[in-house]
Structures are given as C-alpha cells and as structure tokens.
Design a protein around this nucleic acid. Structure first.
Lengths: 234, 234
DNA sequence: GGGTCTGCTTGATATACATCAATTCAATAG
DNA sequence: CTATTGAATTGATGTATATCAAGCAGACCC
C-alpha cells in the first residue's frame, strides 16, 4: 500500500469490516489502495459523483453533508478509525452526500471496483459488509426519529449522553470540532445551539467554552428522553 | 408454505431479495415460513422486541412508526410486494420501529433465524441482502435530508412527484391511505398537511378529496427542489 | 501591548409550524 | 332521506426555531 506507515495497517485490519476476511484477500485490498493525507477544509467528493473509492478515515475528522436550497446540512461526523460511504460503493451509485475534511486527515482510499470484486470472492467480507450496512441503517433510523420526535434542546441533550457513552463513559469531555458543525448536525442554527446549551444548564449540564460536564446524568436523561432501544453494540 | 395460494409464490420469488438465489434454498426458506392474513389496524410488533421474523408484505398496507414523548411518527409506509425490517433481522437486534397494518394484509413471515442461516449458505442471497440494505440506507439518507432541508409544503410537493414517478408516471392519482398517516410520514400535523395542499395549488397541483392532479410538473418541481441525485433505480 | 480576525453568544424580531377550537364534508347506518 | 360518526378542513392563537443585528471573547499577528 502506498504511503502506509507501520502501525496503521493492523489498526485498519482490526476493523469489523475487514477483521474476519481471508488474509490474502485483505492483503489484496490493501495493496490496491492508497493512504493519503488531506489538509483541513478540503472537499473530498461531491454529491452526484459516481462512487470511485471506499474511504476509511485513519486519522483526523471528516464531515459528510448534503446541500439543498442554498443551505448545507451536516449528515454525519466521521471519527477515526471508520469507513464511510459504503452503501454508494456497494451499489455502484452516485454519492448522496458530499464530504470534506474538518482537520488534517489520513484516509485510506479503496478503489470501489476492487472492493466490489473482492466482496464477491470473500464471503466473510460480504457478511461483514452486510452487517456494517445494517448497523448504518439503524443509525439513520435513530437519526430520523431524533429529528422528528425531539426538539432542539432535547436533541442536544441526547447527543451529549450518546457522545459520553461512546467515549468511555466520561462525564466530562471536550467537544472536538466547531460548534457550528455540531449545530448543523443536530439540525439547528448556531444561535439556537447556544440557547440549547443554556437550556441544558437547568438539566444537569454545565459548560465552559467547548468543555462539557454532565453533572446530573439522570436529570439530563429525563429531559432528553433516551431511545426506547439502547444504542447498538458494535 | 402454510396458507399459500397459487400465484403469490412466484411473485415473492421474483423480488430482488430472493430472485437470484438457489432454487432449493429458496424453497427451504418458503417452506419454513408462514403466510398469514391480518386485519386492519393490528399491531404486528413493537419497538424493542427481538426481531423474530422477516416480513414480506404480499398484499395490503403496513405502517412502520416510532414513538417517543407521547407522540407517534410514521417512518415508512410499506406497499406490496416488499420486505421490511431486514436490518434488525440480519443483525439479530431489537426492532427500532413498531409496525401495524393499515389495511387487511397478507404477510409472509420468514423466521429470522432461518433467514440468517440460509444467508450464510447462499452467497447470492447474501449479496441480494447486502444490496437491499444499501438501497434502504440511501432511502433513509434521502428522508433525513428531506426533513432537514425542506419545509413542509416542499416536502409534500417532493413526495407527490416521487409518488407519481414510482407509480408509472401518472399525473393523476389517488392517495391510498388516510391523510393523517401521510402527514405523520411527512413530519407534520394533519392540519398543516391541509394547508400544504392549498399552498401547492399555486404550484401546479390540484386536488379534490384524495384525488391528486399534477398539472404543472415543472412548476411543482421548481417549488419543491428535487434531489440533486435522482431516485435509485430498483 | 494593541489590533484584527473569527467564532460564539445574546437580544430583538420574524416565520414556520403546532395547537386548540369550530365547522364542513363524506361515508355509513338506520 | 336523515342521522351519526370520523376525518378533513379552516380559522385563531401559541410556541419553537430561524433570522437579523450587535456585542463579546479567545487566538493569532505585528
């Protein structure tokens, strides 16, 4: 694999997507792929483009967003190490979202045709892909119900709880990116995000800048009404 | 297969999900499944239940909905002949949505364990499942951007255009179900749906009861800003 | 240090949409 | 045919969120 450093290959190989497949096949995928570094704020691809690569974010941060009617909306913030736009690659269809780096990022680019070819030959990879897509599907079901059933401050509260749970149950943490991106992800304006934060002050959350402290998990949970089904185990 | 009539087996076998698989394997799935008739307004399953069956709606109509904070919201209206809740079955996880019949419905119930077992043995079925999930994923991406970027009347306009395209490019058609369900699917109240319809009168849509006529496709399209990527071919 | 960014916050106002309440309409039963 | 019921519509009002407009604070620069 071009530009690949020691130490990151095992990290990628350990991903659920590539973990169970045949070693030789995995090597074939890796040797046909490129690991590239991109500067921050760079557009990686645009809506409508034919999916040419499966992306695996190794380091940095990537934003997936959709445009329409002059406005942008963030669909997902990808954290390392994770693959994205798998669905478009599988079906050989145009991207429904655009992508840009939020920070300087190292990304593994797997040619879509290669990915599709190896999937056909390696059942374990196909099965892992299927599982990955099913999990992604469920994430989106959650995101859609979130938008339809919760109002903005509740969405923020729910996001903070999920974020904390995903990052080692820390009650105290720092928001990684800009708040404007978070606002867009949560489907609100930056102004409204500010107000949502001050609403949450009355429900067990204290903030200072981008530092968040969940002081009363119970109260926050009661306020933001957690999903009836807990988050999927990965 | 229990209760199965002549004529519907080929219809199900022709579904993209089951089309390409081995005939004997397909027969194994079918013979382990049940075709049942359910009355209207019956709850088929609830959020949080472990996925025990893959459903294939053969005839009738089914609503998938999610609850939260006292309210309900329609996530999807399933039309025959289509499978649903595939993702939960694949991953052996609890349903994220509840389901109820909107009309008297004939549904094929495929035991989830059987489905998962045969998938492991039949690569063609696995591949078809993978494709189906990827398509479903893309549908949800569209639904989420729709909610985040369009306002209510635009969503209705967009829905009418898509509906017309999916049902043989008819400019004139009748809405199948109750409007309250459509309102919930589109993320608005029934009252607001009424107002949205009258807004669309000024953009090339005329209605009378549940009869819809798209008189000016161009105008409606301009108003509701179609997706940058046209709907996936199935 | 002062200045100039840029992003975040705060306040005032506008707007989309929900809610509440009444009325109309359509389907059905007697 | 009229009476009854539930859904759809219409109108009046309330609320969540967006928009517009300042102000404020931390980062970077000279």
């Amino acid at each position: 694999m071009t530009f690949m450093r020691i130490g990151e290959k095992p990290e990628i190989a350990r991903l659920p997507l590539f973990r169970d497949m045949d070693d030789a096949m995995r090597e074939r995928i890796f040797s046909g792929s490129f690991l590239q570094v991109f500067p921050p704020q760079l557009t990686l691809f645009e809506v409508g483009q034919r999916a040419d690569f499966l992306h695996v974010l190794v380091d940095g941060a990537v934003e997936l967003y959709a445009a329409g009617g002059g406005r942008d909306t963030t669909m997902r913030i990808v954290e390392p190490v994770t693959s994205y736009i798998l669905a478009a690659v599988i079906n050989d269809m145009p991207y429904l979202m655009s992508a840009r780096t939020l920070a300087s990022s190292r990304i593994l680019l797997v040619p879509a045709a290669l990915m599709r070819e190896v999937i056909k030959q390696d059942t374990a990879l196909m099965q892992a892909t299927m599982h990955e897509l099913a999990l992604g599907y469920r994430d989106l079901v959650r995101a859609l119900t979130d938008m339809k059933l919760r109002q903005s401050a509740e969405r923020l509260g729910h996001y903070l709880l999920e974020y904390s749970a995903r990052h080692g149950e820390n009650w105290e943490f720092e928001l990684s990116g800009e708040k404007r991106v978070l606002a867009s992800l949560l489907g609100m304006t930056p102004e409204n995000l500010s107000r949502a934060f001050s609403t949450l002050k009355g429900h067990g959350v204290s903030t200072s800048g981008s530092k968040i402290r969940i002081e009363d998990r119970i109260a926050l949970s009661a306020f933001s009404r957690p999903d009836p089904v807990p988050a999927d185990q990965r």
